[in-house]
Structures are given as C-alpha cells and as structure tokens.
Amino acid sequence: MAGLRLGMVAGEASGDLLAASVLDGLSARTDALDARGIGGPQMRHGGFDAWWTTDALSVNGYIEVLREYPRLKRMRDSLRERLLEWRPDVFVGVDAPDFNLDLELALRERGLRTVHFIGPSIWAWRAGRIERIRRAVDHVLLIFPFEEEIYRKAGIPATYVGHPLADRIPEGVDTEGARRALGLFPGGGPVVALMPGSRGGEVERLGPDFLRTAAWLHLRRPDIRFLLPAASDRLFERLREMATALKLPATLPLTLVSGRSHEVIAAADTVLVASGTATLEVALMRKPMVIAYRLAWLSYRIMRRMALLPWIGLPNILSREFIVPEFVQAAVRPEALGQALLAQLDDDAGREAIARRFADLHGQLRRDCASRAAERILEIGGG
C-alpha cells in the first residue's frame, strides 16, 4: 500500500506495547505510515507522533475515573477535533474502552472508519456495552479465541488475531541467564518476583502489602530472594520510598529494578502479581503466580455487581478454572499471599503442571498478531 494515515489511542503501558506491535506490522506493509494520537514510549520508538502520552489515560477504578473525568473529557474533545481536522484513513482504539468507544462513535458519525483492538471484555462484565460497540466501530480485533463467537452472535464484524505477547515471548525461558543479568548469583535460594502493577494507583494499593509479604516470607525462609520491577522512573522512586517507610528487615534480599519486567519474570520461581496484562505475561513465560486485586471500596462494589465470571486473572479466565490462586480486596493480606507463594515454591510437581497448562495457552494465542491485525486495518483503511 502506498501510504496510510492512522489515528491511534493506547492507554497505559500494556496498551503501548500492544499498539507498538501493530505499528510494526503496518510499517512493514506500507510505503509511508503516518500515525498520530495518544501513545507511549514503545509506540514513539517506532515513529508514532504522540500528541499526548499514555500516562494521561492511566486511571484505574470507577471512582478514580469520575474524579479525573473533567480532564479526560477535555483531552478527548481536543483529540476528536484534531483527528476530524486531520482526517486519518482509519482510527484504531487500543483497549481503554471507556475513553475510546465514545471517541470512536464520534469519529464514525463524522465519516471516519474505526477499529477497536482488544475487544472490550463483555464476557467478564458490562455485557450491556455490546450495543455501544456496535454503533462505535466498523471492526473489532480480538486477542482471545473464544471472543469471536460472542461478537459473531452479536452481529459485530470481528477477527481473532491472536495476542501479540504470545508472539513476542519465546517458548524457552533462560532463568539462570536472567538471574545473572539482574546481578543474582547462581546457586542461591529461590526467587520471588513482586509485581504490584504499572499504574500509580495500583502500586499505592498493593505495593505495601507485597513488600510486607516479602518480609513475612523472609522471616520463614531467609534463603528466598526478591525482585521488584518498577514500570517507570517515577514508580521506581515511589517504591523505594515505600520500602524505606515500611522499615523492612535490613537483611531482606530485595532488588528493586527499573523496567526489565520480562527479565524479572524469567528469573523468578514464582510471581506475586497484580491482576491485569502482567498475569498473561507471567503465564506465557510458564511461571506459577499468585494474583492479587484491590480497588477503592466503592469501585469494587460497582465492579462486583457487574461481574459475570468467578475469575479475575486472565490465565484463569482463559483456562476457565482456578489454575493459580487469586486474592481480592480484604483477602490481600501478607500472611495469605505468603502462604500461597510458599505452597507453590514447595510443590515441584504443581509448578510443572502449571507450566504445561501455560504452554498450551501460549500455543492457542500465538497467531502472528501484528501481521493479522495490520492486514485487517489496511483492508478497512483502504476501503
């Protein structure tokens, strides 16, 4: 194709990563890709013109969104007008459905073609959103195989393209190599990764209890080593402040890392992780995990009323059973999390069984997502 003008919005770090893979696929198929909108460092590295950064959309929870709504609405209105003036061939909203669907609807009503990448999880909650999706988008790109039938029955054009993380993450993980790269001496005790989230709100709600869990485990198993990756420089400083304020044991073998989350996961024997895309990254790297989830009280009450599934973690949702344990709200306590992690560390057969299940999941999701998504976007944008 001679060229493509692409509008795109990606929210938070995971959306930035997913969108960047699609931009790579489009760049390989067009002579000139001009992509603009809201994006993060991964997208900008590929030449994306970010009018705003993904950090501006990183808000988690219903009450938190309401608090930020005036700012978000001003940004969305300004973005809409810029896109309507620029007139891209196609607009692609990456996840962030509460922001993107309204934007997509406004653009589509003014004659622009719209695609939503990562279908809103109507299978988990907010099933009433389906009519809004039907009006807002020309096509939905799906990352999970079971979603295609749901959208087909709803009469919404959709294509399963696989998950870009499944293409990006290799089948084999070099655990010892990752440990050496992170400065952990080989032959030491087991390694537990602590991943309290990539957003500030998540880290504030989960970070203290994740660190207290490390302290709880250290008292019982002094040989365990801990890795804590921070998604940004700002969160690195915040986590360091948090660890200092908690007055953790001076002997606690805790390594705080800036970025490098994949290396941290690869180095771990098991992972304590906030519910979200990171749980899928852990699963694709064949690692057992304990999932934690905590929202502001009112946000959680609203979400719980709308929930349609008994699971919150993506590996469990995709497997349709509790492959790994989940702890939600008040159940997120250091002793409970610590006991679940110890149970995994002390069960070699159990960890191997989890790894096999996650290997099967990897195979289902690996579909060359970037190529499939790019082909559909070019078809729609060129039509």
Rank of each mutant, 00 (worst) to 15 (best):
289 M>G: 12
289 M>C: 11
291 I>P: 08
292 A>M: 10
292 A>S: 14
293 Y>A: 03
294 R>P: 07
295 L>C: 05
295 L>N: 01
295 L>E: 09
296 A>D: 14
298 L>K: 03
298 L>H: 05
298 L>F: 11
298 L>R: 09
299 S>W: 09
301 R>K: 10
301 R>G: 10
302 I>V: 15
302 I>N: 07
303 M>G: 04
303 M>S: 03
304 R>E: 12
304 R>N: 09
305 R>I: 15
306 M>E: 14
307 A>D: 09
308 L>D: 11
309 L>P: 01
309 L>M: 13
309 L>N: 13
311 W>C: 02
314 L>V: 09
315 P>M: 06
315 P>V: 09
315 P>F: 04
317 I>C: 11
317 I>A: 08
318 L>V: 08
318 L>W: 05
318 L>D: 03
318 L>E: 02
319 S>R: 14
319 S>N: 14
319 S>H: 14
320 R>H: 15
321 E>D: 14
321 E>T: 15
322 F>V: 01
322 F>I: 00
322 F>K: 12
323 I>W: 04
323 I>L: 15
324 V>D: 08
325 P>C: 06
327 F>R: 04
328 V>S: 00
328 V>I: 06
328 V>Y: 05
329 Q>C: 05
329 Q>H: 02
330 A>T: 08
331 A>E: 10
331 A>I: 00
332 V>N: 08
332 V>S: 11
333 R>P: 07
